[in-house]
């Protein structure tokens, strides 16, 4: 009998939680604010779902009741992606070592 694909996804999910656990514990506390802004940016990969919602439906009408929510989600996720990565970059650029 074949394994349900859901079980595969669940495995990926559980293992990723563990990966996240160990990776985040090794983040230096002084970078906890950039950590929050970058996790913010990467969780906006939800834009992938938004793009499907906006493009993959029936194409008779560009803006139908389902796709409009996709378009709105693209807008929100885009704010977050650009804003999140850029503000993280801006913060990280400020962390400097002592001049010797």
């Amino acid at each position: 009998m074949e394994i349900d694909p859901f079980v595969f996804r669940l495995s990926i999910f559980i293992l990723s939680i563990f990966v996240g656990y160990y990776v985040v514990w090794s983040v230096t506390p002084s970078l906890h604010t950039p950590l929050m802004s970058v996790t913010n940016a990467i969780s906006s990969v939800i834009i992938v779902g938004a793009i499907i919602a906006a493009l993959a439906g029936n194409n008779e009408k560009i803006f139908n009741e389902a796709s409009i929510f996709g378009f709105l989600a693209i807008l929100l996720a885009a704010v977050n992606i650009f804003g999140g990565f850029l503000v993280t970059h801006r913060m990280l650029a400020m962390y400097k070592k002592k001049k010797k």
Partner: peptide, 24 residues
């Protein structure tokens, strides 16, 4: 949403961010 859309990138990211926030 990652589970709904069967999307690995979203599942991995969601788990990473979820555990990151929990640790913080």
């Amino acid at each position: 949403i990652g589970f709904t859309l069967e999307n690995t990138a979203l599942i991995i990211t969601g788990a990473l961010v979820g555990s990151s926030g929990a640790i913080l």
